[in-house]
Design a protein around this nucleic acid. Structure first.
Length: 249
DNA sequence: CGCGTTTGACCCGCGC
DNA sequence: GCGCGGGTCAAACGCG
């Protein structure tokens, strides 16, 4: 009997963890949806204006700042990562395994929160940079935009996978993703081939893992299905199986 | 003293 | 050409 209770408690714990994960993913998807809606409205506005000046490949930007050209990819899109944190915490540092040196901070027009600029501590040999700013929609989320790639591995061995990191080997063993606690990360899906970029390491951060998941259309479809199922209470166990399917990538 | 952070100044590209 | 705004520089500062 005790054993059964223990099993059920374990299962309940797993479902709770998954629920947290899905909830956060839903939150991020909601943000993306809002962004896309804004873009759609902009496009519609442009169409109404009858301006045929739009050239092929040019999409109206969500914010009409003058540096928008940087947002439009010529070759590679920047890797954008969301990190959940305490909304009252102004700390913009993200533990992603690499050492960064802050070289600037700016208050941007479209967001009251300051944007911090970091470059890899290995610079100038490493050209990796990142911009970190609190999300305009939700101050509990930090948006980190990675620019450039590291030409080296994770520099310090002291970096230990924590609740916000993920070991790929555990995923391939069909275990549940880790609980997302104080810092949770997920990608908006506009990243490049994260799997290729980071897959060489044995320990991969959940940020990077989530990045690879979100950009996968199969994953997003499965996620949507799982959310619906969770909400309607149907196929309760299939929600858990979602995690197993994710590892197929 | 060395290293990292802060912050005002400066640079540069774009739109008007 | 000018102004705006994002990105970068570098001197000053703080901390261990």
């Amino acid at each position: 009997m005790d054993e059964k209770v223990e099993t059920l408690q374990l299962e309940l714990q797993q479902v709770r963890e998954e629920n947290n994960t899905l909830r956060f993913m839903l939150e991020v998807m909601s943000i993306k949806c809002t962004k896309l809606e804004s873009q759609l409205q902009e496009i519609k506005k442009e169409e109404h204006k009858g301006t045929s000046s739009n050239q092929i490949g040019l999409v109206p930007n969500i914010d009409s700042n003058k540096r928008a050209r940087l947002e439009f990819p010529t070759a590679k899109k920047p890797l954008e990562v969301f990190v959940r944190t305490n909304p009252n915490d102004d700390n913009l540092t993200i533990k992603d395994g690499y050492q960064w040196r802050k070289y600037g901070q700016k208050v941007t027009k479209d967001n009251a929160s300051p944007r911090a600029y970091f470059r890899c501590s290995m610079a100038p040999s490493c050209l990796a940079k990142k911009k970190v700013q609190k999300c305009i929609h939700d101050r509990s989320i930090i948006v980190a935009t990675y620019d450039g790639e590291h030409n080296h591995g994770v520099p310090h061995q002291s970096f230990k996978p924590s609740s916000s990191t993920l070991n790929f080997s555990s995923i391939s063993n069909n275990k549940l993703p880790p609980t997302l606690n104080d810092k949770e990360t997920i990608n908006t899906g506009i990243c490049e081939d994260v799997m290729q970029q980071f897959g060489y390491g044995k320990h991969i951060k959940i940020e990077e893992y989530a990045s690879s998941l979100i950009k996968d259309s199969d994953f997003t479809a499965a996620l949507a299905e799982a959310v619906v199922q969770n909400i309607t209470g149907q196929h309760k166990r299939q929600g858990l199986n979602l995690n197993l399917n994710l590892s197929e990538e």
